[in-house]
Design a protein around this nucleic acid. Structure first.
Lengths: 338, 338
DNA sequence: TTGTAAGCGTTATCAT
DNA sequence: ATGATAACGCTTACAA
């Protein structure tokens, strides 16, 4: 595609490129008449500065990289939405990379992002990642990085997450307050930060109400196919009176499994899920939910990253920023007797 | 962030940058020994060519732009997934732009993408777009463009869509075959190509079974809030015995509206939706669905675009490529008497 | 076989 | 007030 450059304008107007550049850039002393001439002509030709040339010169791309496990996922697509909004507001574009829940892919993708010269990186770790040394190394090499959602507890790195502890606590407390005592907890893999936080919230609620913690009621599922069904069966053998599912996919899998076993919700067991499903209201049987502020997480993460990039980071402390979750109790999910 | 350039290698090895470049690029006659030296050293320093410098030189960015109405949407996020996969396979990265269903925003975004020097553009038109002159103009200026899903019927431009006609025909035929005759059709705005195609499929099925076409049963809804409820009420006043909802959002809105009016599905009315909802199986009352091959649409669109970009387009005719849809009939969505 | 130089588009520095 | 030049990182004629 042919495009107009500063050279074209200079040639046509019998000026030097530096003069044209100055006129456009509004800098320095320049003849107002020349300036008018140039800007008008540039306007007429629909001149746009070449960001690639600028990137080369300024050694910055105005692109931020986002690494997520999957795009085609409600939560992450909403987060990306928030990231885009905040980034565009500040003149950045976004390139998305997927790790597909694989550590190896995540590392490859990390290298690609760096090679692509992103100005900074927003990362939500893959479920199979336990080693963040490469990320830390890039950080030490001065690449601005902010983690979100699936983070790692490490004070040196800026993080943005939902209030997983609070959400899990509220969910568990709700179940207890509606008379449940044997609450099964279906979680994603244990080494991920959010798993630990949600589990901690769950335990804290149990403790508050002096309900014993039973390890048999805790199960972890990764992201494979058909992993959940047998786990549900195992859990059911311990006679739970409620399920707390700790992720989007686990919530729906759990719902489907209970449905197919003709287990009445909430008569036989209650169900509450950590999920951002847009159609949760239409699901049957109804499930109460804890929703993560996906959009806000994305916005905040992007803003903090851009502050880092632009060196405006005095006021923000490294550490984790937690954004509150929203619990949605669906009336008919409460036990009939209540 | 400090990174290694060809200059660093040249300096350290007492060579010229061109020699280093040649050694790395594997081109030209070069001393095998020198080559070994250079490649090994580059490897050791983890040298990566600067894509920005390459872009400037080669006048191509190896980035394709994608303009969609919304990212946070099942269908589009799945399409993007497919686009990413195909693009990465061929060494391209993807920058995503959102039109938020606004024509103005779409035009701004189009300019941004062009200014960003994308090598090509994949576009799904916003619902408020009727004028594609800017897109055609860019195309005439030799920017490779492929439209997908929401396309415009114009033989000059390459398009990839689902088989909307076929899907709508199948859905309508299914409703007829299960005894329905007054089938309400809830569609997205009429000027969008997919609306017309789905409507045509609907009409064709009616004609095949010699059922009169009743305009009162056809309604259009845009993407605003709370638009659907009153429309459903209007439609209900014409006593439909089935609803065919032509989009993701309309399907769920329709389901919600019918549910809140205590209209039994499928006893009173049947419902079939054009939707890619991942949890359709869990919805109650059950709705049959026509699913679009989102991933495949994304892959095919990206492949065709990259072929265009790389000039390998001899074998592919301009026009529209239609990928079949999948109809999922949920048993309990059939009328009880059947 | 290797080095020199020009060029991609832009801006900053230093003349003029 | 404006022009010439160098530089960002890389490739590629052309020269040696």
């Amino acid at each position: 595609m042919v495009t107009v450059t500063i050279k074209d304008i200079a040639r046509d107007l019998n000026l030097s490129t530096s003069t044209v550049s100055r006129a456009l850039r509004d800098s320095y002393e320049i003849n107002p008449e020349t300036k008018r001439l140039v800007t008008e002509y540039a306007e007429r030709l629909n001149y746009r500065p070449n960001p690639i040339a600028l990137s080369l010169k300024e050694n910055r791309s105005r692109v931020i990289g986002v690494i997520v496990p999957q795009i085609a996922n409600n939560f992450f697509s909403q987060v990306i939405n928030g990231i885009e909004a905040a980034a565009h507001d500040r003149g950045y574009h976004v390139i998305i990379f997927q790790s597909h829940e694989s550590y190896e892919q995540e590392m490859i993708t990390l290298q690609q992002a760096v090679a692509r010269k992103v100005d900074g990186l927003l990362i939500s770790l893959s479920s199979s990642t336990s080693d963040v040394s490469q990320i830390k190394e890039l950080q030490q090499r001065k690449l601005p990085i902010v983690l979100f959602d699936r983070v790692v507890n490490d004070l040196d790195i800026l993080c943005v997450t939902a209030d997983n502890f609070g959400g899990a606590f509220a969910a568990t407390e709700h179940l207890i307050q509606t008379g449940r005592r044997r609450i099964a907890h279906l979680a994603i893999p244990p080494h991920i930060s959010i798993t630990q936080e949600r589990l901690a919230g769950y335990r804290a609620a149990l403790e508050k109400y002096e309900i014993p913690y039973d390890e048999n009621l805790i199960r972890y599922a990764s992201f494979g196919q058909n992993e959940v069904e047998p786990i549900i069966d195992e859990l059911l053998s311990y006679n739970p009176d409620a399920f707390f599912a700790a992720s989007d996919r686990l919530s729906t899998s759990c719902l489907a499994a209970l449905k197919s076993r003709n287990i009445a919700i909430p008569e036989q067991v209650s169900l509450i899920g950590f999920t951002n499903l847009p159609v949760a209201d239409l699901l049957a049987p109804p499930m109460s939910t804890v929703e993560q502020p996906a959009l806000e997480i994305g916005q905040m993460a992007a803003e903090q990253l851009i502050n880092l990039i632009e060196g405006k980071q005095k006021d923000i402390q490294p550490g984790t920023n937690r954004i509150p979750t929203t619990m949605v109790i669906r009336a008919s999910s409460q036990p009939a007797g209540k």
